[in-house]
Amino acid sequence: MKYLTRYCCIVLCLTAFTASVHAQVQSVDTSVRQSAIRSTEALYHQVIGGQSRLYNGSEYVPFPFPLNEGIPFFISDSMKVGDVSYDGMHFRQVPMMFDMVKDQLIVQESGSFFKIYLVNEKIAQFSLLGHTFVRIVPDSVNARTMTTGFYDRVYQGKTGVYVKRQKMIQETTNNEGIRRTVNDMIRYYVLMDGRYHPVKKEKSVLALLGDEKKEVRQYLRKNKVRYKKDRATALARTMAYYDQLTK
């Protein structure tokens, strides 16, 4: 009961504070409005602490068997600090890991070693190790070419470039028993006019560019943009230049 009373007081204070902010920002610019919102969120996180609705997922269960090669996580198998937009709020500096086999974002509960995975449907996006993952639910137009999940957004302009990064565990049998290897699966998409186009090589990308195809190809040659070296970066540079041409 004491906790409930304290919680209600906190909510009332936050509500009053937010209302005051909204009343003041009507006469100020967008940057001040955004600063006020961030201050409100920071106050919320400070007073709620471990009871934050960020920590309302289920316990993360590791794999019950050893993995002989590779890791199931994005880049690192240890907690790294990142940001996440979850359940309508934005949380900063959160220790997290991304299990790409189970498609689960894992966070560490405040003040403990307890790990939980967040509810995918409540995650709008998260940033981790320099990458921003957004959750895409394809509409009827795109359902044939992509599935619901987290996509690495590597470029966003008039067009967009998204990378679906997944991992799977492959099992093989030898004289020593079962050997399990974690393999990467990567698919690339270009977003144009509301449609996500799956692409693989430079040729399939240029085929989307219509009258600008020739000029874009010249740009790629001149600047030595190589798809074989780094496809995600090459795609981002291609579509960024295309957007410049079609302003």
Rank of each mutant, 00 (worst) to 15 (best):
R33L: 10
P95I: 05
I123C: 10
H90E: 06
H22S: 14
N68S: 13
K224M: 15
Y189A: 11
S112P: 09
A42P: 00
V137M: 08
Q108M: 15
F63N: 01
V154H: 06
G210E: 14
N120Q: 11
L12P: 10
M97Y: 02
I136C: 04
D184F: 11
D243Q: 03
V81E: 02
K115M: 08
I186A: 08
L245E: 02
P198M: 10
H22R: 10
G50T: 12
K200L: 13
K80M: 15
V190T: 06
S204L: 10
L206W: 11
R153I: 13
D29F: 15
Y227N: 15
R53N: 15
L245Q: 05
S20K: 12
Q104R: 07
N68E: 08
F114S: 05
G157M: 11
R217T: 07
V225K: 04
I48F: 13
V137E: 12
V182F: 07
K200F: 09
K115Q: 15
R165C: 09
P198C: 10
A232D: 15
S112I: 02
I10Q: 08
R92L: 11
I71F: 00
P66K: 05
I186D: 03
V25C: 12
L208R: 05
L206M: 12
G82N: 02
R92A: 13
G82Y: 00
I106P: 00
S39G: 14
I123T: 12
I136F: 08
Y55S: 01
M89E: 01
M97I: 06
K158Y: 04
A36N: 01
S27M: 07
V101L: 06
Y151T: 07
M239Y: 07
A207L: 08
R33P: 15
Y241P: 14
T5Y: 15
D99A: 03
R6C: 05
K222G: 03
D230N: 04
Q218T: 09
G194F: 01
K164L: 10
K214L: 07
Y44D: 02
V25D: 13
G177S: 14
H45K: 01
T148P: 12
I123V: 12
V32Y: 09
M146T: 06
S76I: 09
G130E: 06
D243T: 02
T159C: 14
T181E: 13
Q104M: 11
K247A: 09
M185T: 10
V94N: 01
L67S: 01
A234Q: 15
M96Y: 01
V101A: 13
Q108P: 00
T132S: 15
T159D: 12
R231Y: 02
E121N: 04
K222L: 10
S78K: 13
A23F: 15
K214G: 03
Y55V: 05
T246E: 12
R226I: 05
A16T: 05
D184K: 09
G149F: 03
